[in-house]
Amino acid sequence: MTLSVTPGRAVDLRIDPVDEILARVERSFQVCFAPDTVVRKRRSVGARTDRDTWVRVERRSLDKISDQGRNGTECAERLENIARPAWRGCVVWGDSDECVMWRADETELLPADPVGTAVLSDDPKLPDAWWQVFNASLDALAAQDTRRLATPDTVSITQALVTETVRAAFLGDFDTTVGQWTPAHADLNWANMTAPTFCLFDWEDWGNAPRGLDSATLWGSSLAVPALADRVRQERRRDFESRDGKLMTLFTCSKIVGPGAHPQDPRLGPARRMAERIVAELQAG
């Protein structure tokens, strides 16, 4: 079965029909989805099953699939001391008509609801206990060992990508060379964490990345709520104070204020001000 879309139009699973895809996954896993639990995102859709598990189905173009081995959700099963849902199994199939790969992963149910959308407009007022588990999980992740390369936005993060992205948005005489690479979730936003019980999910893109990528990404998702953005910087201050953390802050800012910037994005002003500050710091050495 294929997903019916208009030729030449980018697929967005938030609006495109997914009934046939979900029906195929139900048959493969021998489960039934609860219709009122279906969550649709741009390139994935998920739902609760009648055996009290969660299934996430992802659509990924073949040119976005790396040669680094097994899927990130599967590989994440070996990670230790991180609050995340356990993986149960998967189903994978290709669609030659669209040159895409579909993958469905079944995991444990999340312990709570997602904090919110990827970019927040209101403060979730998370308790100190939540931040403690959050920090412990991110610290544990950074201490792991992997040969995987992170793929934020499905693109492998390399030194060349960092330099190209930052230089496209900011001028200045400063070095963009990354000094430290550590494991990162690579899609750390408020839609991929739960509260009031902390749990980090959607591990498809995790792998080695410049230190501070996760912290900077979450900060960027919080900029419309100044107090929350400040809390992220406070909690992950060791990342932000490092040179690589400053570089990743610029990397994040470049995606907000760069060539594809949206003029109505409430994050534009804070991102520009932070970028000016970071560029000055990097130029000063």
Results as ranks from 00 to 15, higher is better:
residue 202 D to C: 07
residue 160 A to L: 05
residue 257 V to K: 10
residue 175 D to A: 09
residue 247 L to E: 06
residue 269 G to Q: 13
residue 89 G to S: 06
residue 92 V to Y: 04
residue 75 C to P: 00
residue 226 P to Q: 13
residue 19 D to W: 00
residue 33 F to D: 11
residue 186 A to Y: 02
residue 175 D to E: 12
residue 116 G to C: 14
residue 218 L to H: 03
residue 144 Q to G: 09
residue 186 A to E: 08
residue 102 W to M: 05
residue 211 R to G: 05
residue 252 T to P: 00
residue 148 R to I: 04
residue 176 T to G: 04
residue 246 K to E: 11
residue 230 D to M: 14
residue 191 A to F: 01
residue 150 A to I: 01
residue 29 F to R: 09
residue 153 D to V: 07
residue 229 A to Y: 08
residue 206 W to K: 05
residue 143 A to S: 10
residue 208 N to A: 12
residue 105 D to I: 09
residue 6 T to M: 08
residue 81 N to W: 01
residue 253 C to V: 06
residue 67 D to V: 09
residue 241 E to S: 12
residue 259 P to E: 10
residue 12 D to E: 07
residue 149 L to E: 11
residue 245 G to H: 15
residue 15 I to F: 14
residue 276 E to V: 05
residue 261 A to Q: 11
residue 77 E to I: 01
residue 109 L to P: 09
residue 183 P to Y: 01
residue 249 T to A: 11
residue 171 L to P: 05
residue 121 S to G: 04
residue 230 D to P: 15
residue 81 N to P: 00
residue 132 Q to G: 13
residue 203 W to Q: 03
residue 190 W to S: 01
residue 61 S to C: 04
residue 81 N to L: 01
residue 149 L to D: 13
residue 83 A to K: 10
residue 20 E to K: 12
residue 232 V to W: 05
residue 78 R to S: 11
residue 270 P to G: 02
residue 79 L to M: 13
residue 45 V to S: 07
residue 127 P to L: 03
residue 201 F to W: 00
residue 55 V to R: 04
residue 21 I to C: 15
residue 30 Q to W: 02
residue 278 I to V: 15
residue 62 L to T: 14
residue 244 D to S: 09
residue 179 G to Y: 00
residue 70 R to L: 09
residue 215 S to Y: 05
residue 179 G to T: 03
residue 35 P to G: 11
residue 116 G to P: 08
residue 172 G to Y: 07
residue 176 T to D: 06
residue 62 L to V: 14
residue 115 V to D: 03
residue 219 W to M: 03
residue 266 P to G: 02
residue 158 T to V: 06
residue 198 F to L: 13
residue 212 G to Y: 00
residue 59 R to G: 12
residue 39 V to D: 13
residue 87 W to Q: 09
residue 95 D to V: 08
residue 148 R to V: 02
residue 57 V to I: 15
residue 195 A to V: 10
residue 236 R to W: 07
residue 36 D to T: 11
residue 176 T to I: 02
residue 143 A to N: 06
residue 137 S to P: 10
residue 57 V to M: 04
residue 61 S to Q: 08
residue 115 V to L: 06
residue 173 D to G: 13
residue 5 V to Q: 13
residue 154 T to K: 14
residue 153 D to P: 01
residue 66 S to D: 15
residue 219 W to L: 03
residue 168 A to T: 07
residue 121 S to D: 07
residue 43 R to H: 14
residue 38 V to D: 10
residue 224 A to V: 11
residue 205 D to K: 11
residue 234 Q to L: 15
residue 176 T to Y: 00
residue 127 P to T: 00
residue 119 V to A: 07
residue 55 V to I: 15
residue 1 M to H: 14
residue 270 P to I: 03
residue 56 R to H: 00
residue 209 A to Y: 02
residue 50 D to S: 10
residue 38 V to R: 02
residue 131 W to M: 06
residue 67 D to P: 03
residue 184 A to L: 03
residue 281 E to Y: 01
residue 254 S to W: 10
residue 103 R to F: 05
residue 32 C to L: 12
residue 67 D to G: 13
residue 24 R to W: 05
residue 276 E to W: 04
residue 49 T to A: 03
residue 195 A to R: 00
residue 16 D to P: 04
residue 184 A to H: 14
residue 173 D to V: 10
residue 76 A to G: 08
residue 97 D to L: 10
